[in-house]
């Protein structure tokens, strides 16, 4: 049931393949996480800013 039961092998093929794959996935994941956190931060900040400035 788990890949580690049979088909998983710690060899160069797996290391290169999964290394590359997870490298790419981490960049995407971290990038998106950054964007979302930054967006939340920006949202809160701009809301506070809105209050402070009393604009509209």
């Amino acid at each position: 049931m788990f890949p580690f039961s049979f088909e998983w092998v710690w060899d160069m093929g797996h290391i290169v393949f999964h290394g590359g794959l997870w490298y790419a996935l981490s960049i995407l994941g971290m990038g998106m996480t950054y964007c979302i956190i930054k967006a939340v931060y920006d949202t809160v900040k701009s809301k506070d800013g809105g209050h402070g400035s009393g604009h509209h």
């Binding site: 790419a24 995407l28 930054k38 920006d42 809301k47």
Partner: peptide, 25 residues
């Protein structure tokens, strides 16, 4: 929606990173 606005902005901001990863993939 401010969150969406900011999210879009931030994503644009680091789009080069995504594009590079995309090119790699």
């Amino acid at each position: 929606v401010p969150f969406f606005h900011h999210l879009a902005h931030n994503m644009h901001h680091i789009m080069a990173l995504f594009a590079a990863t995309g090119a790699f993939l």
